[in-house]
């Protein structure tokens, strides 16, 4: 079951302006027989002001086709032809509080009927320039014809490029097989073969921690050491000192020396070093006394030979 908005349902159950109007002086017939929708829009246009005084529709189609037709007539009544031509299919969809992606073509049909009716009024011939194919990308409502034409016109060769140019495949990615098939087909026309390996490798989500600040692990440690070195003269002036012992992810272990040992303000000093490191490296860092660093590798539990177990 389609997830139609309440407005779509309301316009379907109680269509406005249904039927051909009397005294119409403009008619637009459009549709897609194979997709099961066809619409006749009749307008009564004031010849002096070009204001649409009345509009009526007759639709062979599904719930959303009927609702889109109803919405279209409501939108354009009272507009001048010029204003009406600015109504886009998105305006029709918005008026109905949205349409499912598979049903957007119903709003397109409404817009085309309007163009056809205006052309009829002006005695011009309206030509449909829009061809519709099977829906490939359901996230962004992109059909096969549009993808194929875009691939051909721009010489696209990867699924990623198709997503950049058409949005198709940029959402849930479940249509990638369909896009690959279109690429293979179009590339084959040009005597080329589609190479799925040509696509850039997917980005690994887990970036190494060391690269967070745009540095390698070695560069980062050097930077940390540099910052600490730059602070030493200040501490040495108070007969203290500090040395870098270890860097583990965001933890920087340091040894406080000289007058800093047992100093009441040692923690204040550590905080100062930490602030400076955070500022210089642009990442969160904790400065911790090296005394809290575990001494030596953790002891592994001794393995008991199986034989002993059995004997005991």
């Amino acid at each position: 079951m389609w997830d139609y908005s309440e407005t779509v349902k309301e316009h379907f159950y109680n269509p406005r302006n249904a039927g051909a109007i009397d005294g119409a002086n403009a008619t637009g017939d459009v549709g897609s027989l194979s997709c099961g929708d066809a619409l006749r829009l009749t307008l009564k246009v004031n010849p002096d002001t070009e204001v649409i005084e009345d509009a009526g529709f007759q639709t062979f189609g599904c719930g959303s086709a009927i609702a889109s037709s109803s919405a279209l007539t409501e939108i354009i009544k009272g507009m001048t032809l010029e204003e009406a031509l600015k109504v886009s299919n998105q305006d029709i969809a918005d008026y109905l509080d949205g349409l499912p992606p598979e049903k957007m073509h119903c709003s397109v049909m409404g817009r085309e009927a309007l163009q056809a009716a205006v052309a009829d009024y002006k005695g011009e011939e309206w030509k449909d320039d829009h061809e519709e194919g099977a829906l490939i990308c359901k996230c962004f409502a992109v059909d096969a014809v549009l993808i194929e034409e875009t691939v051909r016109a721009n010489g696209l060769t990867t699924v990623e490029e198709v997503a950049h140019y058409t949005k198709a495949g940029g959402g849930c990615a479940s249509c990638h097989e369909g896009i690959e098939e279109i690429l293979a087909k179009v590339l084959a026309e040009a005597g080329a073969t589609f190479d799925p390996e040509a696509a850039p490798k997917p980005v690994v989500e887990a970036t190494p921690a060391a690269l967070v600040a745009g540095m390698t692990g070695v560069q980062r440690i050097k930077k940390i050491d540099e910052v600490i070195e730059s602070l030493r003269p200040m501490l040495q002036a108070d007969a203290g000192d500090v040395e870098l012992v270890e860097v583990m992810e965001d933890k920087v272990y340091v040894n406080m020396k000289g007058a800093c040992i047992n100093c009441q303000l040692a923690s204040v000093t550590l905080n100062g070093i930490q602030e400076k490191l955070v500022e210089e490296l642009g990442e969160f860092i904790r400065v911790i006394p090296a005394s809290q660093l575990a001494k030596g590798p953790a002891k592994k539990p001794a393995m008991v030979p199986l034989g002993e177990l059995v004997q005991s």
Partner: peptide, 10 residues
């Protein structure tokens, strides 16, 4: 019917 209503099909 087919002739009376023959819309421009896309």
């Amino acid at each position: 019917p087919e002739a009376a209503f023959a819309p421009a099909y896309s």
